[in-house]
Amino acid sequence: MTDLILTPNIDGVDDFYAELLAAHEGLTKEDSDALNARLVLVLANHVGDREALSQALKAAEK
């Protein structure tokens, strides 16, 4: 079981954030939401670990 990483883990985080915004540029809100949904599923598959995914869902809850 892996603990979810909640400390900084992305090199060049500003580059990543800019790329994320760029992916959404020019999309309608509906298309943007759909993109985010697909992105969540892609990333979840990459994580794989069931426990980590459950922890991620908790971390994202308000």
């Binding site: 990483i5 400390t7 900084p8 883990n9 985080v13 500003d14 954030y17 971390a59």
Partner: peptide, 13 residues
């Protein structure tokens, strides 16, 4: 997220 989770703080610009 930055309030609770350290990982998001470097994203605050």
């Amino acid at each position: 997220l930055s309030e609770k989770h350290e990982f998001a703080r470097p994203m605050v610009n």
